[in-house]
């Protein structure tokens, strides 16, 4: 029902006007009659309306973008202007590929990938939750809201809650100690523990969203096909795997790609949960932020662009698959 929700609203809003329009329709002139003067006016108005966006993009995106590219080749502290800084050639690239900062950068990159383990978990869990919530029974609406709730909450607030639950001597530790554990589980203070906890937080925060997306996707499953399969004697599990799941492939692909791009840019949760500069929690964006703090914007930007390179590859794959899909349709 929700998938039609907004569209319905828009349509409803339009319909009262329709009667009006139909009455006037005969006097409608074809567009070709638009005179030169009118076209010039429309050019002016069009540019006037988009001018704030164009100025915003030029000043706040294009200029930083150019500076970001240039800064990869400068020793820039972010205090002086870039042009007063010393050019250093490929120093930061050499540093990241095999040099001084190589370990830090690729370690943070590895962390980023480790924190993406949540993505397939969210997809699998979300699929089954969506099937469960897509039933004709009481209370499903409330479940949808509750499961989505963590997704809208402030990342800082929930990360602090999780920090206190999982930290050394925190609630979870105390609970296990009370039941016979002899030592802390090190859920934030060891590498494996941190990876586990961050992923758990991300699943908890993200699974509601994938569930809602899958519920929307389930509307494309044809009831007739399921009926036919039932008559042929297929059991529920077979129907789920052979009919429902394939119908959701487009949703899965979309969620996976967008989720991966989001995951690669992960920063907030590990940063708050594990602290600034903690090697166990430093993501690629965390690396960028850390070296911003160290007043080395050249190295930070180089790290950011290497990350961007991988994101662009994923975007290209997505566009390629989308185009092929459209051609098939």
């Amino acid at each position: 029902m929700e998938n039609e929700f907004i569209e319905q609203e828009a349509v409803e809003a339009v319909s009262p006007m329709d009667a009006d329009v139909q009455a006037k329709a005969p006097s409608k002139k074809p567009k070709q009659n638009l005179s030169h003067a009118l076209q010039r006016q429309e050019n002016l108005i069009g540019w006037l309306y988009i001018s704030p966006m164009v100025i915003g993009i030029l000043v706040f995106t294009a200029i930083p973008l150019i500076m970001s590219i240039m800064s990869m080749f400068y020793e820039w502290d972010g205090l002086r202007s870039l042009f007063e800084s010393e050019p250093v050639g490929w120093k930061w690239f050499q540093s990241i590929f095999g040099g001084l900062n190589s370990h830090d950068y690729w370690n943070s990159f590895l962390n980023t990938l480790v924190f993406a383990i949540q993505l397939p978990i969210c997809l699998v869990l979300g699929f089954f939750l969506a099937v469960a919530m897509n039933r004709n029974m009481k209370g499903v609406q409330a479940f949808r809201v509750i499961y989505y709730l963590p997704g809208v909450m402030s990342i800082v607030a929930v990360s602090i809650v999780w920090q206190n639950l999982f930290k050394y001597g925190g609630t979870i530790d105390q609970l296990f100690m009370k039941n016979g554990a002899t030592d802390s589980l090190m859920l934030l203070d060891s590498r494996a523990g941190a990876a586990f906890t961050v992923n758990l937080l991300l699943v908890w925060k993200g699974v509601g969203y994938t569930t809602l997306m899958f519920i929307a996707g389930l509307q494309s499953v044809s009831p007739d096909q399921i009926e036919a399969a039932k008559i042929d004697g297929a059991n529920s599990w077979t129907i789920l795997m052979k009919i429902t799941l394939p119908a959701l492939y487009p949703t899965i692909f979309y969620l996976f790609v967008t989720g991966l791009m989001g995951s690669l840019q992960m920063f907030n949760e590990p940063f708050i949960l594990l602290g600034d500069g903690n090697p166990d929690g430093m993501t690629a964006v965390g690396f960028v932020y850390y070296f911003f703090g160290q007043k080395n914007l050249g190295l930070a930007s180089t790290g950011a662009w290497i990350l961007a390179f991988f994101i662009f590859i994923i975007t290209a794959i997505q566009m390629y698959v989308d185009r092929r899909k459209r051609e098939e349709d």
């Binding site: 988009i50 164009v54 995106t61 200029i63 970001s68 972010g78 840019q265 911003f292 950011a304 961007a308």
Partner: peptide
């Protein structure tokens, strides 16, 4: 063309432009 450029800027990761933005 303007719309296409705008869509293109959506693909730029925030991490790439955030430091020059901070300076700006």
């Amino acid at each position: 063309i303007v719309f296409l450029i705008m869509l293109g800027t959506m693909m730029i990761p925030f991490a790439v432009i955030m430091l020059p933005q901070a300076w700006l």
